[in-house]
Design a protein around this nucleic acid. Structure first.
Lengths: 158, 158
DNA sequence: TCCAACTGATTGAAGTTTCAACAACACCAT
DNA sequence: ATGGTGTTGTTGAAACTTCAATCAGTTGGA
């Protein structure tokens, strides 16, 4: 018979807890600022990322599934979001010839134009609220830290 | 006549861009993991934070506005969230005697119980996906970094 | 006292995301 | 070729958040 012993919870110590909460608040603040900035162009961060990702893709188009992956949205959410963006003329759907299930999301000229107009102030906000607030040293450490978070995720998903 | 000279956009260099995107993806991954974990208890991160915040408050209760501030939610959102949590018996509203506009959100025994049950695996998730994935050195740097983000926000809000 | 301005919290509608179910298609072994 | 299995993307309803309007109560000045 197997005896089940409940392993005691390893709580976070005071410093870890403080850092964790600081992270939560800081991250919230960052997206607040960026959202406020993008809202002046009628965009939110998720939509902006879609525009950026498409603008860098070959022929400015990507399959829905690839796009969803790249911007970290569920497919369902992306379907709805793209539908709205399509209504505004920012992207358009094209069926792709080689896989008839597939759909391309294609960045329109209007979408590209909006991206170009909104990018400068967005980048400025990222700089102000994050890059320059933090300073080069710790900024690079943040890069390493989140790289590890992602790497740990990839490892455990094998 | 004032001549308006458009200052050229200072784009992010390649490394800054890479770090920024790594951060966005990593942050998304963190909340994904935490949400998945809390969902097994029927909670999301926002609700969990409400439970924690109330559990630490005097008499396990807080005015709606204070609570909203502490968990970084709009008042309206908090009203709706607390209404749902009240339906589930996790918190209850009490009118406070000294300011008759005011409402206390009070953590119930049931709410406290759910917090106690969900805390261990939540903490374990935070450890796994963040604290231990990152390592002590960079973890502290993250603490400094986001502390600066918050400090910069406070300064510009004066 | 009375009024104007402000604060605390809620409301309901509109907008967005999530969730489960589904339809169409591709892939593959038989 | 056929049927099972997995994939792609969509759909509609439910759940949640946002937004503007609103109500009730407080505060301070005339």
């Amino acid at each position: 018979m197997t005896e089940t012993v409940e392993s005691p919870t390893r709580w976070l110590d005071a410093e870890q807890q403080r850092i964790w909460r600081t992270y939560l608040l800081g991250a919230a603040r960052i997206s607040e600022v960026l959202d406020a900035d993008l809202r002046t162009h009628g965009l939110d961060l998720a939509e902006y990322e879609i525009l950026v990702t498409l603008s860098e893709a070959e022929d400015r188009r990507l399959r829905m599934a690839e796009l969803a992956e790249a911007v970290h949205q569920s497919r369902s959410r992306l379907t709805h979001t793209v539908t709205r963006m399509e209504r505004r003329g920012l992207v358009e759907r094209e069926s792709c010839p080689d896989d008839r299930r597939g759909v391309w999301a294609h960045l329109t000229e209007a979408g590209m134009g909006l991206l170009r107009r909104s990018a400068p102030s967005h980048v400025e906000s990222v700089r102000r609220v994050f890059v320059e607030a933090v300073g080069p040293e710790d900024f690079r450490a943040v890069g390493r830290a989140f790289e590890r978070v992602l790497a740990a995720g990839r490892e455990s998903a094998d």
